[in-house]
Nucleic acid binder design. Structure first.
Length: 349
DNA sequence: AATACCCTCAACCGCGGAACT
DNA sequence: GAGTTCCGCGGTTGAGGGTAT
């Protein structure tokens, strides 16, 4: 049952907040905590609705907010989480320390989504737009879909635990929740025994499958151009690590622009793929090891990322990777083992 | 310098679910 | 169990700043 339309009293102010209003809200919450948002405006002397106050607080005034440009790692994490969760911005926010759901949503809509589209990747499915799935890929996609649902549910439950734990903190100024704090809360919430606790990890324990995917992807037999490139992954944050090759090439620390992506693509292919394939056919959708990797690791375990490359055009570079059901089964069993053995355990399963 | 267009992001709106009565 | 209230989420909007013409 939904609630009836929210009708505010006339005379309440809307629009941008003034510094005075910010100060009032900040001062009130600092002293009393927010309590009931509905009652807060009157108590704080604000001509605003409670909703507006909550939004201003959560998206702008809260002390544990990181502002400014998104780092490469943050962007990669967003893409990965989006592949798993879709538009579940609030859950993503719990896994991106100090970023608000609104900020993540805005960044996705204004930057990341456009970049994926530009690269020919459907931002909704995280798969290349122009390539239909074959039977083998459908099977693998189903595997990934299942894994994504599974991990998505777990991430959501963890986010809920973080929220519930935060609710226990009455005054945010007494206990400001940084990334390690929230990780600790998850850790505590998921640990039910009374045995002495080992030190909590310093990162949110939330990306097990992402990590496992990436790790397994790298450790998988060389069966396509991607696995052959030996791109380094950061297992802690579940994001790609560009520091080695990227830095060596003088790439910026921010998300690479198209020129840089082309550089990276060249890098990715130069050793293992026929140069004429990588450079001679402009119609081939070259998998740059960021976007395609992020999208397809999550959604296409066959590693046969781009049929136009790995199939007829490529001399069957990835031919033996697809179709080996037993190998795939072992592959996923290993992944599940990895996940099951992850230090965080799972609050859901 | 003026105007049009584009982009970004803070803020609003409406809805669904949880909590309460 | 039904009705009501509150909170939080995701989608959308539009003001304002930046850039192109």
């Amino acid at each position: 049952m939904g609630r009836s339309p929210f009708v505010e009293k006339v005379g309440l102010k809307k629009g941008p907040w003034t510094p005075e209003e910010d100060h009032k809200l900040l001062a009130y919450i600092e002293q009393y905590g927010h309590g009931s948002w509905r009652a807060l405006p009157a108590k704080a002397g604000l001509q605003r609705c409670g909703k507006s106050c909550r939004l201003r607080w959560t998206n702008y005034l809260r002390p544990d907010i990181k502002r400014g440009k998104f780092s490469l790692q943050e962007e990669q994490t967003i893409i990965q989480l989006h592949a798993l969760l879709g538009n579940r911005w609030s859950i993503m926010a719990t896994h991106l320390s100090k970023r608000t759901d609104n900020e993540i949503k805005n960044h996705w809509n204004t930057h990341l989504k456009k970049r994926l589209i530009k690269l020919g990747i459907d931002p909704a499915t995280h798969k290349p737009k122009s390539h239909a799935l074959g039977p083998c890929q459908l099977k693998d996609a189903a595997n990934h879909s299942h894994m994504a649902q599974w991990e998505g549910a777990r991430l959501e439950a963890e986010a809920r635990l973080v929220r519930e734990s935060k609710l226990k903190v009455s005054n945010p100024f007494q206990t400001q929740l940084g990334p390690s704090a929230s990780a600790h809360l998850v850790y505590e919430a998921t640990t039910t025994t009374t045995a002495p606790l080992p030190p909590p990890p310093h990162q949110p324990l939330c990306l097990d499958v992402l990590t496992a995917w990436q790790g397994s992807w790298l450790n998988a037999p060389k069966c396509n151009a991607f696995s052959a490139t030996r791109v380094t992954l950061d297992s802690v944050t579940s994001t790609f690590n560009l520091s080695n090759k990227g830095a060596a090439m003088g790439l910026s620390s921010n998300f690479p622009d198209e020129t840089e992506i082309l550089q990276l693509q060249g890098l990715a292919y130069s050793t293992d793929i026929d140069d004429s394939l990588a450079t001679g056919n402009e119609n081939i959708l070259l998998p740059n090891f960021m976007e395609a990797g992020l999208a397809d690791i999550l959604l296409d375990n066959s590693n046969q990322l781009y049929p136009s490359i790995t199939g007829a055009n490529s001399g069957n570079v990835a031919g033996n990777c697809c179709g080996d059901f037993e190998e795939n089964t072992n592959y996923w069993n290993n992944l599940l083992n990895l996940v099951n053995c992850s230090p965080s355990g799972s609050p859901v399963f």
